[in-house]
């Protein structure tokens, strides 16, 4: 496999995101987060750390999600719409290499975003406690899960971006994210019902939509609880498999697409 075209597209996608000034929101985010640590330290006596961890992880997740969807829906559509793809695809680069490069480029962008936000978060945590505790290490697992979640969202966006408009792609991705965040509840509902078709339907939906509910570990981590190693492994494998299926589907759609 010639990885050079993939690497070139990856780096260019990252460069585009940086020059779109998307990353600059992070500075503002870090400042707000650190400032909020001071505020919450004053108004929530005793549970300020729990609130900060919950707030910090939720903020990283939500900001990351917004950036993933905002950039992801335009990944392919913008290139087709503005016709910048014409000159690129007349070079020795295959369409799947272009898609893979786009996917990896957005993931690199999200990774850098998350690193900056995480740095701000740890600074706020240190400012609040003036020390780090042993159980704080589980925060890294929560952040890792956020990265997996964002990677999955990117794959969904990329898939829709191959055949849909940005607005529709955003709506579809957001709906899938919401449904996926409640996938455990959907399955639970199916198990409670006595209707066999309803049970089969809820099980089908549970397996079809991406299961985002297993990525949310902010609450136990905030209380200093450990995250099981099997969950880390399963979530990693799940993300790899689900994202790969979506990427292959995107490549199948895009490989026969007429660029009118």
């Amino acid at each position: 496999m010639n990885s050079s075209p993939v690497l070139a597209v990856t780096l260019n996608t990252f460069r585009e995101a940086v020059r779109d000034r998307i990353l600059y929101n992070l500075v503002a985010f870090a400042v707000i987060l650190i400032a909020s640590a001071v505020l919450f330290g004053q108004i929530s006596i005793g549970i300020e750390k729990i609130i900060l961890i919950n707030l910090g992880l939720s903020s990283i997740s939500v900001f990351g999600l917004l950036i993933a969807i905002f950039l992801g829906i335009n990944l392919v559509f913008k290139e087709i719409d503005k016709r910048s793809l014409y000159a690129l695809l007349s070079k020795p680069v295959r369409r799947w290499q272009f898609l893979l490069g786009k996917f990896l480029g957005l993931n690199v962008t999200l990774l850098v975003n998350t690193i900056f936000m995480t740095a701000g978060f740890w600074a706020a945590l240190y400012y609040l406690n003036r020390k780090f505790e042993r159980q704080d290490q589980f925060i890294w697992v929560a952040i890792y899960f956020i990265l997996l979640e964002l990677s999955l969202v990117t794959a969904i966006c990329l898939f829709f971006s191959c055949f849909s408009t940005p607005v529709l792609s955003a709506v579809f991705t957001f709906l899938l994210y919401i449904i996926g965040s409640f996938s455990a509840d959907i399955r639970g509902f199916g198990e409670l019902t006595h209707s066999a078709p309803l049970k089969a339907l809820s099980t089908f939906v549970y397996y079809l939509v991406p299961n985002f509910s297993d990525f949310s570990v902010a609450a136990p981590v905030a209380h200093g609880k450990a995250v099981p190693g099997t969950l880390v492994l399963l979530n990693t494998i799940y993300t790899l498999c689900y994202a790969s299926v979506l990427l292959v589907a995107s490549m199948a759609v895009f490989s026969r697409k007429d660029l009118k």
Partner: peptide
């Protein structure tokens, strides 16, 4: 080599960067 009609290129790149980028594919 191909020049599309009414070409549009990545407008966040400079002329030099664009040629560098495309050169990576060869």
């Amino acid at each position: 080599g191909y020049l599309p009609e009414n070409p549009y290129f990545y407008d966040y790149l400079t002329a030099q960067e664009l040629l560098d980028y495309f050169a990576h594919f060869f």
